[in-house]
Design a binder for these strands. Sequence first.
DNA 1: CTAGGCCAGTGACATTTGTCATGCTCCGGC
DNA 2: GCCGGAGCATGACAAATGTCACTGGCCTAG
Lengths: 244, 244
Amino acid sequence: MSGAAGAGGVGAGGGAAGGVAAGGVAAGGVGVGPVDAGADGAARGIRLLIADDEHLIRGALVALLNLEPDIEVVASAADGVAAVEQAIATRPDVCLLDLEMPEADGIEAATRILAAVPTRVVIVTRHARPGVLRRALASKVSGFVPKSTPAEELAHVIRDVAAGRRYIDPEIAATALTAERCPLTDRELDALRFSRSTMSVQQIAERLHLAPGTVRNYLSSAMTKLDASSRHEAAERAWEQGWI
Amino acid sequence: MSGAAGAGGVGAGGGAAGGVAAGGVAAGGVGVGPVDAGADGAARGIRLLIADDEHLIRGALVALLNLEPDIEVVASAADGVAAVEQAIATRPDVCLLDLEMPEADGIEAATRILAAVPTRVVIVTRHARPGVLRRALASKVSGFVPKSTPAEELAHVIRDVAAGRRYIDPEIAATALTAERCPLTDRELDALRFSRSTMSVQQIAERLHLAPGTVRNYLSSAMTKLDASSRHEAAERAWEQGWI
DNA sequence: CTAGGCCAGTGACATTTGTCATGCTCCGGC
DNA sequence: GCCGGAGCATGACAAATGTCACTGGCCTAG
C-alpha cells in the first residue's frame, strides 16, 4: 500500500546521486581501532564508526565513506564486542553496524551501544529479513539498509540519520508490513532453532530437557503452520522470515 | 609466501574446456556499465574490472581501489554474464570477480572471460572452500583471496597478478593441500546436490531417473564416507569442501 | 579373459521422523 | 465456578529414512 513504509522522510531517493566528491582524506592505514582524527578543522563533519567482520568489506566501506567531505570515519571494528568498546571510546555521531558479526550481532551491539553512548545506529545486512527489521526497530535503531543499496545512497542515509531522521529501506519495510507476525509459540521456536543445524530430535530433546516425542510435536505443529514438509524446511522458512 | 600454492597437478583435468564462445548478447537490464575513464594522464595504470552482486560492496571496492594511484577501475558488473560482456567491451588488465554471483558464478565467468580476452582474473569469495580453489585454478585463474583479506592487501594482489605473478591466499592453499580429494562417486555427488535443498528421496529419485532405493544407497554410502549421520549433514559437509 | 570398480536395482530390516489423540495446566470471560 | 482456548507435554502409530546383503551389467586395467 501507499508508503506507510515511508517512515516519514524516507530518502525518497531524489535523483542526484552525484559522483563521489573527490578530495578529502585519502586515509592510508585501515587497521582496526581508532582512526587518527588528524587535524580536526572540519566544522560539522559526521563522526562515524564502522563495524563489519569481513576485513575487505570493512576497509572498502571506510574508503568509500571517507571520500565524502562531511563524513569522517573515526573507528572500525571486526565484531560486535569490539564495536561496543570502540563506540564508548570514540563516541561517534553515527554507527554503521553489519548485522552478521561474531561475538555479538548487529542488533545486540546496537542495544549495548545505545545504552552507553548518545549516538545513532544504522544496520546493514545481506539478507534483509522482516522479523529482523522489527527487532532492530525495537532496539531504537535509526536506519536499516540491505547490502544491495547503491553505494552512493549510503552517504545520504548516514546524513539523514545524523540529522535525527530515520531511514528504512522501502522494500524491506513493505515486506515487513505485509508479512504477518510470527504464528509460532516459544517452544516451537526453540525447537526450530536447533533444527537449523544438523541435530537429531534426540539431541534437541536433551538440550531442551524434553521428551523426544514432545520435540517432534512442536516441530510437527511448526511444520503445519509454516506449510513445510520437513523440519529443515520449516526451520529454513522461519529463518528467512527472521523469526529465529 | 605469495607464490607457493604450487598445487601440484592442478592442470590435471586437461579436459577440453568447452568452446564457450560468448554467444548473443543477453538482456541488457543490469544498470551497471562501463565507467567513464575520464582524461587519463597516467602512463602505466592497471585497468581493472570489478564484479560483485552486492551493490554496496561493489561501490565500496571501486572507491577503495580507485584510491590507488596506479589502479583505474574501468568497468563494474553485478552478475557473471554482465561481467563477461564488460570484459569483452573494455578489455581490462585484471578482473576482480566475486565467486557468489547470479547468472554465472565467478568461476564460470572467469572461464568465459579468459577464453575471449587476454586478461587475468582474481576471484574473491566469502566462504573459501578448498574444492573451489581447485576448480578456480583449473580455470586458469591467477588469484584467489577470501573476503577476510585485509583491504590494503588487495591492491598488492592486483599488482602482483597484473605483473603476471599468481597469488593464492596461503591459508586456503594450505587447507586445500592437506584436505584429501573428494572420495565420492559422481552419482553420490548428484544425489547430494539435491539433498541440500529440502527434497524427499522420492523426488530426488524422480529427478535422477533412478529407483528410490538406489538413491538411498548412494546417500547412505556418501554419509559413510563423510562420517555424517543424515543426508543433510553429508550434503552440508560436501558443500563446505567445495565438492558440490 | 578376468578381477575389480562403479553403477543400478531389489528386498529385508532397524531407526528416525512426522501425525494424531490425549491429558495437563494456566489463563480470561461470563 | 465453569467453560473454552492456548500452550505444554506425552505416548502410540504410520511413514520416511538409513543400513545391509546381494544380484547383475558395463567398462578398464592387468
